[in-house]
């Protein structure tokens, strides 16, 4: 399955604008899609706590998991097994949810997801490809 890169704009405080090209993937839950960045540097997928509530999770009932960012700050999160579709492909992965995670999209990390799909980035051709194993 080939997926187009998504283009977003960034306006810096210096008044300059940049175009950012990101490998974003739509995770399909029962009532909504949630945009996630494929993040090869993330050990585990990380998502917004409010998203977890919307898909029916009681966040604090998950397995406690302190997430450490590259700034060294640790925030509390809770791991849940979640299910969703990507196009026709059913996925079941562990993901951490945190109320303190306030990214503009979720992060798809390596745990579980990278065992489900072979992922190939073709940024120059504006697409990435995910192929189920």
């Amino acid at each position: 399955m080939k997926v187009s890169y998504t283009i977003l704009q960034s306006d810096t405080f210096l008044g300059k604008s940049f175009i950012t090209k990101l490998p974003l993937l739509k995770l399909e839950f029962s009532k909504l899609y949630y945009m996630c960045l494929i993040d090869t540097g993330a050990d585990i997928s990380l998502m917004n706590g409010d998203l977890g509530k919307e898909i029916g999770l009681v966040i604090e009932k998950g397995e406690p998991f302190p997430v450490k960012g590259i700034d060294g700050v640790i925030i509390p999160s809770y791991i849940h097994k979640i299910e969703f579709y990507i196009d026709k492909y059913f996925c079941k992965i562990d993901a951490a949810f945190s109320e303190r995670f306030n990214f503009p999209f979720g992060l798809i990390g390596r745990k579980d997801f990278f065992d489900l799909f072979r992922i190939c980035f073709n940024q120059k051709e504006n697409f990435f490809e995910i192929v189920p194993y």
């Binding site: 977003l8 704009q9 960034s10 306006d11 810096t12 940049f18 175009i19 950012t20 990101l22 974003l24 739509k26 399909e28 009532k31 909504l32 899609y33 949630y34 945009m35 993040d39 540097g41 993330a42 998203l51 997430v67 450490k68 960012g69 590259i70 700034d71 700050v73 925030i75 945190s98 303190r100 995670f101 990214f103 503009p104 999209f105 992060l107």
Partner: peptide, 18 residues
């Protein structure tokens, strides 16, 4: 079915720091 994303002013300088 809605596709959810947050609008921010700067994605380019965005570094995944929690």
């Amino acid at each position: 079915k809605p596709v959810l994303i947050k609008a921010i002013q700067n994605y380019s300088m965005f570094i995944p720091i929690l």
